[in-house]
Amino acid sequence: MSELHSALNALLTRFISPIIAQGILKRALREQNLDPLTLDRIGLQAVSPRLETAVRLFMDPESAEAFRAALLDLAGAPIPLESKKLSIKTERDLTDALSETRRLCQHWRMRAISQQKVATVVSELARNIVNYTPGGTVELIPLQGHTPRVLVRATDTGNGIPNLDQILEGRYRSKTGLGKGLLGTKRLSDRFEVRSGRSGTVVEAELKL
């Protein structure tokens, strides 16, 4: 077990019984796809919200608050996760963007299903940029806080999305499947916004981690 993992276990057992502590910790780590042997501060940061929720069943509000404070103390200053801006113009940029997205999601310790969603969103939005515009960028912005999220912002210098309303309402039918990527992205996202016009388009998709 990593040192941090041992410290975390010790912290939990200050508040609840060892057996329950062990169970909570094991489950939280597994759900977040973290390995106890290599648990580091970034991992702890990622799993903290899950732990805070789990212990509420076993502690009174005051203890839960004390636990939360102690957990923050153990985690130390929040490690700022950095955004990444990817330039998208060619097909090659698309494949590079996906590799980079995957690497970042793993670095941020996202669950497998969340990684999948983010990568799919990036793939859809970047592909639209490559296929229909002269070029643009895709930004991956981690939003930390009580509900950690990732913001994917795709900006391009194209001529705007025709039939946008129809596309977003699912009424647009195209043989080539045009529009399905955008609608699919909307369905995957927790928050979705498109601003599109003659001078370009900005798509923002927020996904919970």
Binding site: L98, R102, Q116, A119, T120, S123, E124, R127, T176, G177, K180, G181, G184
Partner: peptide, 10 residues
Amino acid sequence: LWLMDSHFCA
């Protein structure tokens, strides 16, 4: 395959 998007499905 690690990813399948709308383009690939089409």
